[in-house]
Design a protein around this nucleic acid. Structure first.
Length: 274
DNA sequence: CACGAGACCTGTTCGC
DNA sequence: TGCGAACAGGTCTCGT
C-alpha cells in the first residue's frame, strides 16, 4: 500500500493521534524483532541495544520513508510492498504479520505489519546517508517546472520507469505514476528527453493532482493489505484494463514496462504526438 | 548509462 | 474442487 499518499496518511495519523495517542513524546522501551531481516542497519543486536529508552520527537516523511527523529538518532522505516505501521494497545494479540514491534510507554505498541517481509527499518545517526539519495519531493512548491524539465532533459529513458526511480523523483509508485501519466495525456513509453515544455508542465501537474487526490482520500486500499483509504475508487487507469477510459471511452490497455504492469489509454495517451 | 532478468517473500486470484 | 501460474503498492543486484 505504500506510495507517497499512503505513507503520508500513516505519518499524519501517528504524528497527530486521534483514536490513539500522538507518537511524538513517547518513549520506546524495547523492540521485539521476530524477522531479523527487517533491520537494515545497524546489526540486530546493536539495534536492540540502541533503541531502548529512545524518545520519539516527531513523525515525518521523505519519499516513501517514514522518518522518526529520536532524542538520539533517527528511525527510518520503509514499508515496501505490504507493510503497515500502527499503534495498538499492548493487550491486543499480536497479528500474524506483525514481525517488528516497538514497545511504547506502559501500554501501547507501535507495530510493523509486513506479510511479504520486504520492509526495512534503519536506526541511523545520520539519516541523510539514505535520504540523501532521494530525488526531489513532487509536492514541494519549491520544485519547479523548470527544474523538472532540466532533470528530464538530462535523462534518456522511458517515462514510466524513470518516474519510478526514487533518485529521480521521490514518492511515486506504480499506481500514481500510471494515474499521473493519464492525467497528463502522455504515453508511458515516451522518452524523457523528448517532452515539450508544455508536456513537462502537464506531467508535473498530473503528478501533483494524482498525489493530492490520493491524499484527499487517505490513500488507496487494494486487495487485502491496507485498509483506510478510498482512492482505489477513483482510479482512471490503474487496474482498469479493458474498461472504458473515463475521458474518451477507449478500453484501457495494459502492458509490461520495466517489469511493472502499466495501464494507459491509447487514445488519450498517444505514442507520438501530432 | 539504460535495460532486462532474477531475488527477496507471501497471499490472492485466475485459468484450465 | 484442485492445482499451478500469474500477479501484487518496492527495490536491489548482476549481466549485457
Amino acid at each position: 500500500m505504500p506510495e507517497l499518499p499512503e505513507v503520508e496518511t500513516i505519518v499524519r495519523k501517528l504524528r497527530d493521534g486521534g483514536e490513539t495517542p500522538a507518537l511524538p513524546g513517547m518513549r520506546i522501551q524495547k523492540a521485539s524483532i521476530r524477522w531479523p531481516k527487517h533491520i537494515g542497519a545497524p546489526s540486530v543486536s546493536s539495534f536492540r541495544r540502541r533503541i531502548r529508552g529512545r524518545v520519539i520527537s516527531d513523525v515525518q516523511r521523505r519519499g516513501k520513508f517514514l522518518v522518526l527523529p529520536l532524542d538520539k538518532g533517527t528511525l527510518l522505516i520503509h514499508l515496501r510492498m505490504s507493510g503497515d505501521l500502527y499503534l495498538l494497545p499492548s493487550e491486543l494479540p499480536r497479528g500474524p504479520y506483525e514481525h517488528t514491534i516497538f514497545h511504547i510507554k506502559p501500554d501501547w505498541q507501535l507495530r510493523f505489519s509486513d506479510s511479504r517481509k520486504f520492509g526495512r527499518v534503519y536506526l541511523l545517526d545520520n539519516p541523510d546517508q539514505i535520504l540523501g539519495q532521494l530525488g526531489p519531493e513532487p509536492l514541494d512548491p519549491s520544485f519547479t517546472v523548470d527544474q523538472f524539465a532540466e532533470r528530464l532533459a538530462h535523462r534518456r529513458r522511458a517515462l514510466k520507469p524513470l518516474l519510478l526511480d526514487q533518485a529521480f523523483i521521490a514518492g511515486l509508485g506504480n499506481i500514481y505514476t500510471d494515474e499521473a501519466l493519464h492525467l497528463a495525456g502522455i504515453h508511458p513509453e515516451i522518452h524523457s528527453d523528448t517532452l515539450t515544455r508544455s508536456q513537462v508542465q502537464d506531467l508535473l501537474e498530473g503528478i501533483r493532482t494524482a498525489l493530492n487526490e490520493g491524499l484527499r482520500h487517505n490513500g488507496a486500499s487494494i486487495d487485502w493489505v491496507y485498509r483506510g483509504g478510498n482512492y482505489q475508487n477513483q482510479f482512471r487507469v490503474y487496474q482498469r484494463t479493458g474498461k472504458p477510459c473515463i475521458k474518451c471511452g477507449t478500453p484501457i490497455h495494459r502492458i509490461t514496462l520495466g517489469q511493472r504492469g502499466t495501464h494507459f489509454c491509447p487514445t488519450c495517451q498517444p505514442e507520438r504526438s501530432s
